[in-house]
Write a protein that binds this DNA or RNA. Structure first.
Lengths: 164, 164
DNA sequence: ACATTAGGTTGCGAATCGCTACTTATCTCG
DNA sequence: CGAGATAAGTAGCGATTCGCAACCTAATGT
């Protein structure tokens, strides 16, 4: 009957999933590109505007939204109080794997070539690995290796861990 | 001066980046939730509609878009020619790391709790690891370990490899 | 043959997008 | 100090997209 190992009990898709919550914060147009700008050292409104070519009102709206969600922190510069700095918070930095995964997918399946410049390991200047889904002990997993499970059926955890 | 190791030469943000290309395919409202439905075994228009509560015209538009981008394949059922099956292509499956990374981020930073059900390794029923950016030899990397580099400066590759 | 189901399409009001122009606060330079 | 220039927005407004409900068409069940 075509069961593929990834089937989750229906009627629970909409509820109990954090994907809608994540998209609430990051799902709008320009949000990911603004985030990418932040990862690349853009700090100021005018930098984002000229670099991304986004309309000013939309940019203002998105920056405010990202600040509201705690992804960027807004601080006026001390040395020039006209300027405002938008910097990634820890929560914002935590989106790095998502962003890299999306970018790598685009490279592989849309543009067909690695974007320049390339993201490398600072230690040995080698390309980073493709972002993968891994088991707890570091084995790469494909869709055939994955199952949806209820928290109480997860191995290697106490009930307290499962609830946290 | 606050250089964080992730600065990419400016003026190249908009060009030469596959993130806009990826977002062209997946950046619209509902696209990720439809993808998630596909990963969870939803195949038919009415399933997506009732499960996600999305408007019918928007759903039709998004499914067509995902098919156009080769993320879903559309095929009318043989046994009931009213029905249409939307199934993930290889390209669509390749979005799994992105989707898992986004979901995990939402769990950690938005909902604050693991969504039920939980994605586990089928072999040992243990939770999958957090999706991370890794070096070529499997070390986890943080933002401090990363640099942007031109293709010709990437170590461990011939020029031919760099160009491909 | 008649009703039902699956997968859409159409119409239309509401919200969002994007462009341009304007505003306000701050800094620089003479 | 006063005259620009600059940074970060805001306001107006037409164009696009969203979302709800109703309708349509082909295939199926009874």
């Amino acid at each position: 009957m075509g069961h593929n190992g990834l089937r989750e009990p229906l009627r629970q898709l909409a509820n109990n999933c954090s994907l809608p919550a994540a998209l609430e914060a990051m799902g709008e147009r320009w949000s990911f590109l603004i985030l990418r700008g932040s990862f690349n050292g853009l700090y100021h409104f005018e930098e984002f505007q000229s670099e991304l070519g986004i309309a000013r009102n939309i940019l203002a709206n998105r920056l405010a939204r990202l600040v509201d969600h705690g992804i960027l922190a807004r601080q006026t510069c001390d040395d020039d109080r006209r300027k405002v700095e938008y910097r990634l918070t820890e929560k914002g930095f935590a989106l790095l794997p998502t962003m890299v995964a999306l970018r790598q997918w685009g490279e592989r399946w849309e543009t067909g070539m690695p974007a320049t410049p390339v993201l490398v390991d600072a230690r040995d200047h080698r390309r980073i690995a493709p972002v993968q889904v891994m088991s707890h002990d570091g084995r790469p997993l494909t869709k055939h290796d994955l199952l949806w499970s209820l928290p109480e059926d997860v191995a290697g955890e106490t009930p307290a861990q499962a609830a946290e």
